[in-house]
């Protein structure tokens, strides 16, 4: 389970997070959605230990990230928005590197890598160097890297950003599969149709604050609208956050 409590983070004069808090439960796909500048990426970065909050806290399976970053990271698999591959390493070497950094080694690690390569459909390019990979191939490598240590919790930042239809569908299938295995999955996406299909719970944030949260149906009731995009817009307007969001 991932839990964030009253996160506050300021960069100079910019208030990136202003008391944001929510929970992402095991066996659920929780979607963190919001306009640009809502603080989604900053919140994620605090959860996976890249940034330290000015106040508030982030917890992964009961571990306070600020207190024990490495313990929290062991239970966390992350797909950041920027995939950031090493152009001179092969797909397999990427996955092996991160598996080793998480403490795996030997035959067990190699078996896990083979399984991931098959599961993510990477057989064709597993032993090719990453330079020149398509966005779909990059995403699969980044996913393999995030999953190699079998994390219980997953954070996926814009998981289908820039992917073609087939690759997007494959990623969505994987998310559902992992949810059914009981993983806690926290995603951020701008694609409302995807959010609508995938997410059990939604957290809407704007200007670093929580605007609304609940199941898609609960939010539809709150906004008195059926289309999730319309729900999103109405809730932001209701909270007076749309002006800032548009800017």
């Amino acid at each position: 389970m991932i839990e964030i409590k009253d996160l506050v983070k300021r960069f100079g004069t910019v208030q990136a997070l202003d008391g944001l808090g929510f929970q992402a439960k095991d066996g659920d796909v929780t979607g963190l959605i919001g306009p640009n500048g809502a603080g989604k990426t900053t919140a994620f970065r605090i959860v996976y230990g890249l940034m330290v909050a000015d106040s508030g806290s982030a917890w992964v399976d009961g571990v306070d990230v600020a207190q024990d970053r490495m313990a929290a990271q062991r239970n966390l698999g992350v797909l950041p928005d920027v995939r950031g591959l090493y152009p001179r390493l092969t797909a397999r070497e990427h996955i092996r590197y991160f598996g080793e950094l998480h403490g795996s080694s030997g035959a067990e690690l190699e078996a896990d890598i083979d399984e991931l390569i098959e599961r993510l459909g990477m057989q064709d390019f597993a032993d090719r160097r990453a330079k020149g990979f398509s966005r779909g191939q990059e995403l699969k490598v980044a996913l393999g890297r995030a999953l190699v240590h079998r994390p219980h919790n997953l954070i996926l930042d814009e998981p289908t950003n820039g992917l073609d239809v087939m690759s997007s569908r494959a990623v969505r299938d994987l998310i559902v599969e992992m949810k059914n295995e009981g993983h806690c999955i926290l995603i951020s996406s701008h694609i409302m149709s995807e959010v609508s299909v995938l997410c059990d719970r939604l957290v809407i944030a704007a200007a670093g604050r929580l605007i609304a949260q609940g199941t898609p149906d609960e939010l539809r009731d709150q906004a008195d609208a059926q289309d999730l995009e319309e729900v999103f817009v109405r809730l932001l307007m209701k909270a007076g956050a749309l002006q800032g969001a548009a800017a």
Partner: peptide, 17 residues
Amino acid sequence: GERERGALEPLLLAPVE
């Protein structure tokens, strides 16, 4: 260079001092 290519952030997600 890794920072510029976005490869440093994923590396920092691994439990390494």
